[in-house]
Amino acid sequence: MADDWFRSPLWTETARTDFESRLARARARNRAQYLRIKGLALADAGEVVAARALWQRVLTDEGEFAHLESAGALEHLGDSYAREDPIRAEHYYRRLIGEHPSLNGTTAMQHVKLAELLIRRRQPRDLHEAALLLDVMSRDVVPGTRL
């Protein structure tokens, strides 16, 4: 499992030290990917705060492919806050849609996720925006297919 050092759900002091050591030796162009994937493993293991910290690092990484990984990191951040801090989740979803309109590297469901947050607030303005977001999604579907 040495090849999957960045997929381990462990986040003890020893595990953190090992991860950071391996990350420092990794090619700069791969570091953002390793950070994002390690964040997923940590989030799945219940280490959400640590996962968020790694995803934030993806957003500031300057490696060659970091921009590609930042779309996924923004989605992960939004998803991680959706229940406990919907305003923060909204921020990350809006940032993702603005910075990565193609939604490559994501589930491409940010319009729906944002609409869900807005619907929960039940304010007329928010409901109107949610309808517009869902309309955008329905127009992006290939004719003859269903959502």
Rank of each mutant, 00 (worst) to 15 (best):
109 M>S: 14
79 D>K: 12
108 A>H: 11
105 G>A: 01
109 M>K: 13
73 A>M: 08
80 S>K: 02
88 R>W: 05
104 N>F: 07
70 S>N: 09
107 T>I: 07
82 A>S: 12
93 Y>N: 06
99 E>I: 03
60 T>N: 13
84 E>T: 15
68 L>I: 02
107 T>S: 15
91 H>G: 12
58 V>F: 01
84 E>N: 14
66 A>M: 01
60 T>H: 12
80 S>D: 06
74 L>Y: 03
63 G>W: 03
76 H>F: 13
96 L>K: 06
83 R>W: 10
99 E>G: 04
90 E>S: 12
61 D>I: 05
91 H>E: 15
81 Y>M: 08
71 A>M: 02
103 L>R: 14
66 A>L: 03
109 M>C: 11
85 D>C: 02
73 A>E: 08
95 R>E: 11
71 A>D: 01
103 L>S: 08
84 E>L: 09
88 R>G: 10
61 D>C: 01
109 M>T: 14
104 N>T: 13
72 G>Y: 02
97 I>H: 10
68 L>S: 15
77 L>S: 12
81 Y>K: 05
66 A>P: 07
60 T>V: 13
89 A>G: 10
91 H>K: 15
85 D>M: 07
89 A>E: 07
68 L>E: 14
84 E>G: 14
68 L>M: 14
82 A>W: 07
110 Q>N: 01
69 E>T: 06
99 E>N: 03
99 E>C: 04
98 G>L: 11
87 I>S: 14
75 E>P: 06
90 E>D: 11
103 L>F: 08
62 E>T: 14
59 L>N: 00
106 T>K: 02
71 A>E: 04
101 P>A: 00
85 D>Q: 15
66 A>N: 00
87 I>E: 15
69 E>D: 13
105 G>F: 00
68 L>H: 14
64 E>Y: 04
105 G>V: 01
77 L>N: 05
62 E>R: 13
105 G>P: 06
80 S>E: 06
70 S>F: 03
76 H>G: 14
101 P>F: 00
62 E>A: 12
66 A>T: 04
